[in-house]
Write a protein that binds this DNA or RNA. Sequence first.
DNA 1: CTGGGTGCAAAATCTTTGCAGATCC
DNA 2: GGATCTGCAAAGATTTTGCACCCAG
Lengths: 132, 132
Amino acid sequence: MQYRKSKQREKILRFLREADSHPTAELVYAELKKDIPGLSLGTVYRNLNVLITQGLVQRLPFGSGYDRFEARIAPHYHLVCDRCGKVSDFEMPQHPSVNESVQKMTDFKVLRHRIDFFGLCKKCQNQNNQVF
Amino acid sequence: MQYRKSKQREKILRFLREADSHPTAELVYAELKKDIPGLSLGTVYRNLNVLITQGLVQRLPFGSGYDRFEARIAPHYHLVCDRCGKVSDFEMPQHPSVNESVQKMTDFKVLRHRIDFFGLCKKCQNQNNQVF
DNA sequence: CTGGGTGCAAAATCTTTGCAGATCC
DNA sequence: GGATCTGCAAAGATTTTGCACCCAG
């Protein structure tokens, strides 16, 4: 399958690259709709899947509600706030040997890994006793 | 909210504890239906959520199709096959200091983390050139 | 032109929920 | 007896897809 250029797909990718917010498809749609009034949510989902196939975007399923998407391909980890759901990137010095050492200990061929740290972001720590 | 005993919930938990397959809700349902003919899928989902609330079960969202569930609470990591989707547990010696050291490097309060290794399971490595 | 891309709406997928009756304590 | 549970089916939430038209190459 060979891809053509499309204004929609270009802007979706650009938006993801400029955003550091790991947005949902709905959010991408809402933002870009300001710029491309005729845009439809189906097109956003379709293009996200194309970009994922091209290896330009990653899907981040966190299991509550909408999946999130990001355009950072370089390995990095995530900090996920249990309270507000905010996702931030975390530049942990990578242990390039992790995949290899896991592979040595198992019969599994390890190609990549994903690490998410869960807890409370700065803002939510400060509100710790108030909500609920 | 205080919970009562129910045959359905007990059997769901027992099944998850005995299975090492990280089944989906559908699969739990299909298996237990043999034993409890009247069982409904809604009841399975409802009870999985109760068990999660009780801290007896964890939800493993992987983002393609159904969520998976497991009853192992002790910290461990997962090996996820890109090809067949099989999920296995991996007993990696935990670095108990990981959460702390991440916390020191950020303003995030780290409570726990999740690591998934993706690649090819033994079986799929051997079929590497055949499928598709 | 030709085949991929788009918007729209319908469909598909996955999970939760309202209700009436059954069950547990 | 009253709250919790269950099965059923309907509704909700999230994502994909069919179709007719549009546009890039």
